[in-house]
Amino acid sequence: MDSLLEFAKGPLFRFSFAVMILGLIRVFILSLINGFEAKSKAKDKVIPKNFVTKLTLGFILPIRAFRVKPVYSFISILFHIGLLLTPILLFDHALLFDNSIGFSWLNISLSGTIASNLTLFTISAGILLIILRISDKKSRFISRKQDFLWPLLLLVPFITGYVCGNVVISPLTYKTFLTIHILSGDLIFILIPLTKIAHCVLLPISQWITARAWKFVPEAGENIEKILGKEGQKL
């Protein structure tokens, strides 16, 4: 167990961290290249720039989403804040970075109480999001198996981390939980650039890519049923 823990903290952590950072850069650059190539291949080279810009900004600042689905959006924002702040700013994590990669931000790390509260928020928000996803018919229809799996996997390190930090347990259980915590964290790091979690860097250009690559007419999504002549039909 100890050697596994050391391996997960040391080499595996460095590997997954490097794969995450470089993988995200790779995905971003590949998407950009694809976007440029799509335009060079297309016959109709006109792109509704203003509309695309507005749509992109709307995606990043979810004002539009608030109007459509206020509850879902609010929970989603809470979830994202917890998801980003807690793992990055926790003191122990900064220490891990210091020990295995050589740089850290020990000075600006969160205190234990705030971190554990944020973790609880994140876990509950995550579970709520999954429940909402299952309960909504449209969401369920467009979701694949992995779209349920990745959020659940994201919650694993949060739950184990909370247990390690706040619950009094036997040392052996503690070590098991810690190993699961670190291993799942490493797995998530590796999966980030390879799965839909890559939206953390792809979000700003996703609308741009869609507009360039697929040449959708503005508001095409809303009118697709009308254009196809399948208005009012079952999904």
């Binding site: 460095r14 590997f15 961290f17 790779r26």
Partner: peptide
């Protein structure tokens, strides 16, 4: 992909 994967492996292999 090969570049990223190999980079990660080498980065892991460099002794901490």
């Amino acid at each position: 992909f090969a570049f990223v994967f190999a980079f990660g492996l080498a980065f892991a292999a460099i002794s901490g």
